[in-house]
């Protein structure tokens, strides 16, 4: 398709940069999928309560990548994906995916603060307190 088209060095550089970014994103998605599959396999034999905040015992059964995100939120109180990334040293996009995954699993909650999305651990402490 590109036959006959003259690509400028600037365009080639931009295409290569975009390809690098795409490869990096695909790698992150693959890595995350593996972690989720591993977690789901572990979960088959363990009863997991939905919409309950993560206590330390349930942290033991979480994949390491998700556990690091939860521990970072415990430390920071509440955090944006950017703040999580600063705490864990991992990429912002990755932290965003992990935190959203934890929200879907019922471990975390999220809210909007202006233009930012903030993740936090809920207060469903209706029993035991």
């Amino acid at each position: 398709m590109l036959q006959g088209m003259d690509l400028l060095p600037k365009d080639t550089e931009m295409i290569m940069k975009r390809l690098d970014e795409l490869t990096s994103k695909v790698d992150s998605i693959l890595e995350m999928s593996k972690e989720i599959l591993r977690f789901l396999e572990n979960r088959r034999s363990v009863h997991v309560h939905q919409d309950l905040p993560p206590d330390v015992m349930s942290l033991l059964s979480l994949p390491g990548s998700l556990r690091r995100t939860v521990l970072a939120i415990y430390k920071l109180g509440e955090a944006t994906a950017e703040e999580l990334s600063e705490e864990t040293g991992r990429k912002r996009a990755m932290e965003c995916s992990y935190a959203n995954q934890l929200v879907r699993m019922g471990y975390l909650k999220k809210k909007r603060k202006g233009r930012k999305v903030v993740f936090y651990i809920g207060n469903n402490s209706s029993r035991g307190s």
Binding site: P53, D55, V56, S125, S129
Partner: peptide, 16 residues
């Protein structure tokens, strides 16, 4: 006699 939810709140308080 405390349950998991109390311990979640306890961990948050411990961090504070």
């Amino acid at each position: 006699g405390k349950g998991a939810l109390f311990e979640v709140s306890a961990l948050k308080k411990l961090y504070r």
